[in-house]
Design a protein around this nucleic acid. Sequence first.
DNA 1: TATGAATGAGGGTTCATTCAT
DNA 2: CATGAATGAACCCTCATTCAT
Lengths: 207, 207, 207, 207
Amino acid sequence: MGKVEENKRLKKDAIVNSAFSLFIQKGINETSIADIMKKAELAKGTFYLYFKDKFEVRDYLVRKKATQIFEDAYHTMEQSDVVEFDDKIIFLVDHMLNQLNDNKILLRFISKNLSWGIFRHAIQNMSGERGLNAEDCMKQMFEESDLKFRNPEMLLFMIIELVNSTAHNVILYRQPVELPELKEYLYPLIRRMIRDFTIEESELVMV
Amino acid sequence: MGKVEENKRLKKDAIVNSAFSLFIQKGINETSIADIMKKAELAKGTFYLYFKDKFEVRDYLVRKKATQIFEDAYHTMEQSDVVEFDDKIIFLVDHMLNQLNDNKILLRFISKNLSWGIFRHAIQNMSGERGLNAEDCMKQMFEESDLKFRNPEMLLFMIIELVNSTAHNVILYRQPVELPELKEYLYPLIRRMIRDFTIEESELVMV
Amino acid sequence: MGKVEENKRLKKDAIVNSAFSLFIQKGINETSIADIMKKAELAKGTFYLYFKDKFEVRDYLVRKKATQIFEDAYHTMEQSDVVEFDDKIIFLVDHMLNQLNDNKILLRFISKNLSWGIFRHAIQNMSGERGLNAEDCMKQMFEESDLKFRNPEMLLFMIIELVNSTAHNVILYRQPVELPELKEYLYPLIRRMIRDFTIEESELVMV
Amino acid sequence: MGKVEENKRLKKDAIVNSAFSLFIQKGINETSIADIMKKAELAKGTFYLYFKDKFEVRDYLVRKKATQIFEDAYHTMEQSDVVEFDDKIIFLVDHMLNQLNDNKILLRFISKNLSWGIFRHAIQNMSGERGLNAEDCMKQMFEESDLKFRNPEMLLFMIIELVNSTAHNVILYRQPVELPELKEYLYPLIRRMIRDFTIEESELVMV
DNA sequence: TATGAATGAGGGTTCATTCAT
DNA sequence: CATGAATGAACCCTCATTCAT
């Protein structure tokens, strides 16, 4: 029967949730496995039946949380009536920034870990669980638009890095400006980047 | 006489150098104070005469190394014959990227710690020691150029964050492209950002 | 089954016994937790599963040993044929003094810690474990006697302090007299104190 | 010249005063030599020119402070018009108790160390410095009175121990009664002890 | 599977003491 | 005499990990 499976899932969730709340509260280095299991109300030894060490839990959490944020943004976008490619990108970015701004603790946790490498890993591996694949989503978006891009991956990379690193400072330390002002500079720049990466009709003919 | 002072400086340097080599080798969390002092060939207790904990050493190191890189780039630029403002910025960025590319270990150490907050702190506090003040340098550069900028601090902030975060991935993980290719996309974008932040003559008249 | 519980009791006893022998040998300040656990043939970390620090062990020991001495004296007295109240008190004191005289090391350990505050705490808290409650014993003794006392608690307090502090010097340093000679002065004085605290029949009528 | 001597005395006083304030504030075990010398505004190494360790300082302090209290009480008594022996004893005890009640911190420091052994040592060794010898004082008091005592030393011993141990609890913990009530029971008891130790005229003739 | 008592290596930190200045 | 930087032994305590139950 699935009762045992169900029970194991509950235990794993308890561990993960406990760990998350402690990681964001005290930091991962100051959190011991004993802490995690005490808060999860499970025996210390049980930890090792589910994870190798606390860093495995951290990685699991980063992927899970990052995916949640992307999924949420993507679903909301799909239900909106945005059609243009650059508007879609801005919509996604804006939605995610707002989520992170509302949940600064989560931001602190995933922000500096969520760079290109982890991002790719996350969107590729995690997606299966809930059926939504971020990489496929993005690919589809690129294809659906009528535009052709010089180097789509590079474009995405630069946008993500720019957004991620500027937002980190602005949201967490409110330095050097507040989030609304950052957006004023950021969104036009993103649109410009998209435009600069677009291959013009004329160029296409040339090639 | 300054013999005692001289000796203290030597001890501090030994600690700092030992710590640096261990931090980049094993990571800061895996480096104990005992490790540091063993490599420095000093007694464990001596550590506490100079630093409160290893994080104080890390901060000291980040400031020191970041300043060194900037100073080096700035000096080289001054001895070159670059005159235009955007060329100067590109020159600085290029020089620093090359330094970091040559010294990936150093990059790993300072990169993720060198965000806007630390950067400002570093260029303001560290400068006195060697006579060169990074903040003043930048200000002077802005003033010397005939251009006026909408929001110079914001411009600098966005450039630094973009360069720092993209370069980090590219240099360390060679993902998604190699450094030369990144530069091909990065430098035009920086020039464009500078242009976008410039207040046109016509606008000036208007105001 | 109670195998685990049994094992824990053994471990705690080992720690306590080891600590006692070291405390009386070298003094508590010169005894480290490492010392205690080495002698107890247990791992250092195990200490913290049973006690917070060595002072908690000391308090535990003082209570335990003091209670043992009292219980022993009380049991012996009950099996004797002493009937008068003052004789009972003298009997108890005498028995306890003899015990302490036979075990000077134990005396040194508990003597200066066994003042009124600790004594009250000891007789109230420790008793449950073995079924005998020192406080109740004393109360019963007071009630069983036909006498009424002006301030029974005060009487007890003064007797205990007088006996404790004089005996400490006499037994440990044999100064200024030997124990038998102290008793010659002490017991008549105690009898006199009891008499002085007694409310006479005549007084009772008055009230 | 005596300038050097004067300077040394000042240094020693600084150390002793600093130590005293720290001992009563944090306890002797929690006070390091570094602490003492920092508060004394002297170099750490200087300590060893005056004392072997902090326990030597403590002993010095106990003697000094205890003597001060006794001297103060004795001087005040001399300037009063008390004549009877038992009144004198009560006067001394009362004065010292009041001093200690006013200075509970001092009491905590010397109380449990000031038993018969230390007391004798103190009154014998320390007296020379200021010209007043407590032992001689007491002897003189005994001789001056017309009374003869069975065992003067024993009498003194029992009074001191009784007063010291009861007062310690009462003043520090206000248990089981307050100081005024303790005195109500204590002073009559002391008078009775003195009477019981007195050799009657009739007895004298007998011998 | 799940437990949690036990382990003991290893961390950070303090501090009495020395000694070159 | 006086200093205070340097020492390194020794302390307390934590914690990942194991394993008998």
